[in-house]
């Protein structure tokens, strides 16, 4: 029985029947208070091998953030077993902290009143990052996340997107083995989103950092995650490839066509259905798993086209369909 459990690379993050129950008190009448249990995480089990990027998605209140808080040691689980890099987060929170990086999209882990540079200096000394490594990591983050002009700005003066990039850098200066990202692209513009995604992809490829990512933006998942887990009401309802999710959820993509003039609904293209018509613009839905090319070709052949675009399925819709298929959950 060694004190340091050997880390199993196939189960770098390991959850076994993890539960979190919140006792909430609610006003029920003038003086009466009602105690109610919220099962935020209700028996979740999964394993994430080292070096994988996993998307962790689900509707609001599904229990994503709560899971991450238990994985980082912020919250004590109410039940179940939990290991990250062989460490039990509740028992060894500070030791685990050296191995993980955390980014909360909703709030900063930086010091509100300090310039980024000072925050990073503090991180360096807290984590005891060797000088050479700190300098190399700094250079890389500043370069790839475009932080050069922001280093002397107090965190409270940064815009949301700037702050988020600053936060991501802060979480990576100590070369964590695991990176948790709770909605890291929330509120970012297209350019920043692309930058962040590219950065994460490189990080994973070069350092083998294991990444667990929650998001409401399907594009994040598509571009980053080979595997996606969906939870709802604290339970895992899907765990597999993103394509599979589309199949299971019977999700649809949307072909938006702008015609030269108003025409009757386009109902003669096989495999599509008209979702909406607004003047010369029409929305054609088709299964997400199908290629758009033949449909586009068929429409272009028969109708006077001005413009067209393909909309990816909305993650909420995918998920909503997924539940519709699983009434028991």
């Amino acid at each position: 029985m060694g004190k340091e459990p050997a880390t199993d690379d196939k189960a770098f993050i390991e959850l076994d029947g993890l539960e979190k129950v919140f006792q909430v008190r609610r006003r029920a009448g003038l003086l009466r208070r009602e105690r109610r249990e919220v099962r935020a995480v209700d028996g979740i089990s999964f394993r994430v091998p080292r070096g994988e990027i996993v998307g962790y998605i689900g509707p609001n209140g599904a229990g994503k953030s709560t899971t991450i808080k238990m994985l980082t040691g912020i919250l004590m689980p109410s039940g179940g077993r939990l290991r990250v890099a062989g460490i039990d987060p509740t028992r060894d929170r500070t030791r685990l902290a050296r191995r993980i990086g955390v980014v909360f999209g909703q709030r900063t882990t930086l010091w509100w009143d300090l310039p980024l540079r000072d925050s990073y200096g503090l991180v360096r000394r807290m984590y005891r990052i060797p000088d050479a490594r700190y300098r190399a990591n700094m250079e890389r983050c500043v370069d790839l996340l475009d932080l050069g002009d922001l280093l002397d700005v107090p965190v409270r003066q940064l815009s949301l997107g700037q702050r988020m990039r600053g936060d991501i850098a802060a979480a990576l200066l100590h070369d964590p083995d695991v990176l948790y990202l709770d909605e890291p692209t929330i509120g970012l513009d297209v350019v920043s989103k692309a930058k962040v995604r590219g950065f994460l992809r490189d990080l994973n490829a070069e350092r083998g950092t294991t990444v667990l990512l929650t998001t409401h933006d399907l594009t994040d998942i598509e571009q980053l995650c080979g595997r996606v887990m969906v939870i709802d009401h604290g339970r895992l309802v899907y765990d597999g490839a993103l394509d599979g999710l589309h199949k299971v959820g019977e999700s649809e993509r949307m072909l938006v066509v702008d015609l030269e003039r108003e025409l009757p609904p386009i109902d003669d293209v096989p495999g599509t259905r008209v979702d909406r018509v607004e003047g010369p613009r029409q929305w054609l839905a088709f299964p997400a798993a199908r290629s758009a090319a033949p449909i586009v070709a068929a429409v272009a052949e028969r109708y006077p086209l001005v413009d067209l675009s393909v909309r990816e399925p909305d993650i909420e819709q995918v998920i909503a369909r997924l539940y519709a298929d699983r009434p028991g959950l």
């Binding site: 040691g73 902290a97 050296r98 882990t109 807290m126 984590y127």
Partner: peptide, 13 residues
């Protein structure tokens, strides 16, 4: 306000 969370993910007491 929940910012206490951030103190818990750092490797110091």
């Amino acid at each position: 306000d929940g910012t206490f969370d951030t103190l818990l993910v750092r490797p110091v007491p």
